[in-house]
Design a protein around this nucleic acid. Structure first.
Lengths: 352, 352
DNA sequence: CTGTTAGCGCCTTCAC
DNA sequence: GTGAAGGCGCTAACAG
């Protein structure tokens, strides 16, 4: 029935450093040196210890190691100030993550900066100096920002980019999604939901100067242009992620375009778009796809105003950034699989 | 620029049990008793200690606690024997998770059983006796199985159901998805991808005696019947999750049904269905939706044979089960958010 | 180069 | 009821 049922009592207690030391005929300290690849051990002794380790198949206990190292770390999360629903949600999740970090002997600060302005962001990063062991920041793909990240990095501060990346920088890790792929995902859903119909599709971005918005737009346009010739994109409009502006733009689209069949919202401000759509009475007719699950987009999905929401899990991103920084500081490995942020598709039926 | 930048040097070292003891004017042992709600402390002393804890805002260090408790646990994962690609994938992920468990002082066995047969499964669970501190098992919603789970539970063995649930049992947690919702998700995607077209949709299950398959079918049929009157469901066929059988059924659907426009595969055996579809030359015309991302379904998505895959992340499920068992055994809390298994939708563009 | 010796922060016997 | 003392497994000074 079952295969490898060694009874509990037979268990020979964990193999410890001491066992290895005895087996290798050396002291604890020497084994410790070998394990942590510290200098000052003769090659011959190293070999002997390694043999013992292999023979006993010893696995160091990370718990005990952490306790004995008795280190504590300081992390900093750089988040936008003010900003939209998604960012508030992210901040909340960062606060949860920092509770967890605290229990892991890491103190976390949250600082706010204008993460959309390269100069301001770079300045904020510069100001961090070497006060932290790790920094997680919403990034921008800009030379100034890259330089600031590389600076931190060369000062020994681990940097993780969050939600928005600076790919060419020396950041340790990016906790976020591939926005081009996210845009393509939106495009394919738009095309398929509109199957057979033809007409115009309006696109509202926050600002195409933001790399993630530009990438989503690129991915979306790529799919639409390449695979759905019956659908024409209206010139992109920028709503600055602002509810009122996006609402105005959506109203205008609706008024000016009788054959409007789709609406793709690249950034925030979905509340405004949804409102315009509902007011127009054409919500059932127009496919509306946007990003990021918030209480608002969720409601729109449920009511059928929105047809799909492409999401990145803010909680996952915050926890992932925290885990990656911790693991890096302790010199422990990460489970790559677990740190991959998915491009979630939500429709009415698979809402969490 | 930044807000709460307390310099690193000012940090006053962690607050420890000792600080609390001093502050309360008692010994370490007493504080320990209070914290772990153990008897043998006068109410007055308890109050004094609790006051001190609050005053210093003391947080116990879980690391040190685990080390000192010096406990080790035994877990068991009960998985189907043989079985399909998804289950192999799950088993691989369980092996990864058990590596992690090992580093957390938990030894893990994997036992194989016929998890589709209530008697066999219940027997396997019964055989586990009290050898384990925790068991994660593919479950079945059946009285015999429920009884076996409840038995384990009352023997003090924590039980987590994995992928397939036994809702009425006294299991601690279910690491899996809501299959009715998953079926509805498939239904909505089918309906929308088929927008405007009408015709027949074939459904192939493994076996409707399996609760998860039945639930998916229910959800799917609910949506199709309620919202897409132009689409008619053909009578469900059961392919026993077997590649050859499903292929034969798919061929028959294709041959007998000229107006076949959709194919929903509830269980495994997608390889067979995809093959039949490709052979028929109607792959572009028929919307094919199935479950679980495997190398095969992935390839079908990329080639456009499949249009969407509803997935449950096997790695996430395995890790989640492991984490929940560990946390339970150590009496530590879990991050609920992190343990919620998503109903993933994958299309060509958002593949991981 | 190698070994000895204190801890890390908490839990768990045991005495009192 | 309460306290003192000895670990848990590992690391980090020091000595030699």
């Amino acid at each position: 029935m079952n295969e490898s049922q060694t009874k509990g009592e037979t268990r020979p207690g964990r193999i410890t450093l001491e066992d290895v030391a005895r087996d290798a005929g050396v002291s604890l300290a020497t084994v410790d040196r070998v394990i942590n690849r510290r200098p000052g051990v003769r090659q011959k002794t190293v070999a002997r210890v390694e043999a013992a380790i292999a023979r006993l198949s010893y696995r160091p206990d990370p718990l005990a190691a952490r306790l004995a190292r008795n280190r504590t770390f300081r992390f900093c999360f750089v988040l936008p100030r003010g900003s939209n629903t998604f960012m508030s949600l992210l901040e909340e999740q960062v606060r949860h993550a920092s509770d967890w970090l605290a229990s892991q002997r890491a103190d976390t600060d949250i600082v706010h900066a204008d993460t959309f302005d390269p100069e301001a962001l770079a300045g904020a990063l510069d100001a961090l100096g070497s006060a932290y062991d790790g920094v997680a920041t919403i990034a921008l793909d800009h030379p100034r920002v890259r330089a600031a990240i590389d600076d931190l990095s060369s000062r020994g501060v681990a940097v993780v980019t969050l939600v928005s990346d600076a790919p060419s920088s020396r950041r340790l890790h990016y906790a976020g999604i591939d926005n081009t792929a996210a845009g393509r995902t939106a495009g394919t859903l738009m095309g398929r939901f509109l199957a057979g119909r033809s007409g115009r599709v309006g696109v509202i971005a926050g600002s195409l100067a933001l790399r993630d918005h530009a990438e989503r737009h690129f991915g979306f346009a790529q799919v639409m242009g390449g695979e759905y010739p019956g659908l024409t994109l209206l010139p992109v409009r920028e709503g600055r992620d602002d509810r009122e502006r996006t609402e105005a733009i959506a109203r205008q689209f609706l008024a000016d375009t009788p054959d409007l069949v789709g609406l793709y919202s690249i950034g925030a401000g979905n509340r405004g778009i949804g409102a315009a759509l509902e007011a127009s009475g054409r919500a059932d007719d127009i496919v509306f796809i946007g990003h990021d699950l918030t209480p608002f987009t969720r409601r729109f999905l449920v009511r059928g105003v929105m047809d799909a929401v492409i999401n990145q899990d803010a909680g996952h991103e915050a926890r992932s950034a925290a885990r990656v920084l911790m693991a890096h500081c302790w010199g422990e490995p990460v489970v790559a699989d677990q740190e991959r942020i998915r491009i979630d598709i939500f429709i009415r039926d698979n809402l969490p």
